[in-house]
Structures are given as structure tokens and as C-alpha cells.
Amino acid sequence: MSALDAIFKRVTVRHYEDKPVEFSKLVTLARAAQKAPTGGNTPYRRVMIIDDPDTIAMIKKIAPGYLSNAPAAILIYTDLEVAEKGLGRLGRDVCSLIDSGAAAANISIAAIELGLATCFTKSYSEVGMKKVLDIPDNCRTDLLVQVGYPHPGRPRSIKKKPEGNIIYHNRHGVSIND
């Protein structure tokens, strides 16, 4: 499968098969996440694989947005001290968030190649997530990516709003379709 095939095939999935994801595949996804860039090559990004059923159950309890039955998740988070030391406030407050998004995108694309699907979640308690996973105060959790095998009988994916497909050419407001 080409990278472009995977990108255009990707959809958000909230219904998964009731089977675990192989640890080796989760490691591949985590490595794909860490292949994404970081501003100034500053090593502030942290990636955690979560596949212990009890831990997933606890996360679901503090994450109202974890609405799927995904059996695994990958958390992308930032060491704020490392980010600020390396890139200042821009690194801490902006670049690191952008780079976490890039890491999550890598996971979602790599998942397609592995027969998996994903769903991004930010709707969770920051305090709760850090306590469940023993994450220290100097870190900020950025994004949780739910991972699993897509259920073949799942409902249709949510339609992308038309405004979500706008592409301009050379000037703001000039669509490539004009």
C-alpha cells in the first residue's frame, strides 16, 4: 500500500472488533509517531503504549470522549521542561502541540497499513489521565489515539464538512477549483 493510498483511506473509527492488538504492531505505531518531526530537533515528545485492559478501563472512566471499544491506545505527550529549555515558550506552547499532531497523523496512517484503525481523543481529564498513568507534573498530555481492528459492521463514517476540504492557491480565498 502506498502512503497516499493509506492517507486517503484513513477514516475515524469508533467501533472495533473485540480482539486485542498485537504488541508488535503497537510498537510499530509508536515508532511511527516518534519518526514525526520535532521543532529544532528538540526531544520533548513522549509516546506511551497502553494495552493493559485494566488501564484502558480506567482511562475510559476519566475520558468522556473515549466512546469507542478500542482495546488499545497510544498517548502522545510533551515534557514541557525539555520543550521550554530547547525552544522557549514557542516550543512549549506551540511547536510541541503541532508536533504531537504530526505524530498522531503518522500513527493513523501507519495503522491503515497494519489493518488497524484509529480515533483521536482530547476529551479527557488532564488531571485524571496523569494520575492514572503516573505522568509527572512537568509533562502535558496532548492527544490520545485509540487503536483497534475496525469492526466490519460499523456504521458509516461521519461526513467531513465541506469547509474541511478547502484548498487555496497562492492567495487566501482563491480556491483551486476557481
Binding site: 472512566k61 468522556p64 476529551s123 481529564s125
Partner: peptide, 16 residues
């Protein structure tokens, strides 16, 4: 579990 859901949902309502 339901109480925990409500509390975290309440916190989410501040920013979401």
C-alpha cells in the same frame, strides 16, 4: 464509574 464520568464531563464543559 458514572460519578467519575459526570465529574470529568463537567470539567470538559469548561474548555470543550
Amino acid at each position: 464509574d458514572y460519578i467519575l464520568f459526570l465529574l470529568t464531563a463537567a470539567r470538559g464543559c469548561v474548555d470543550e
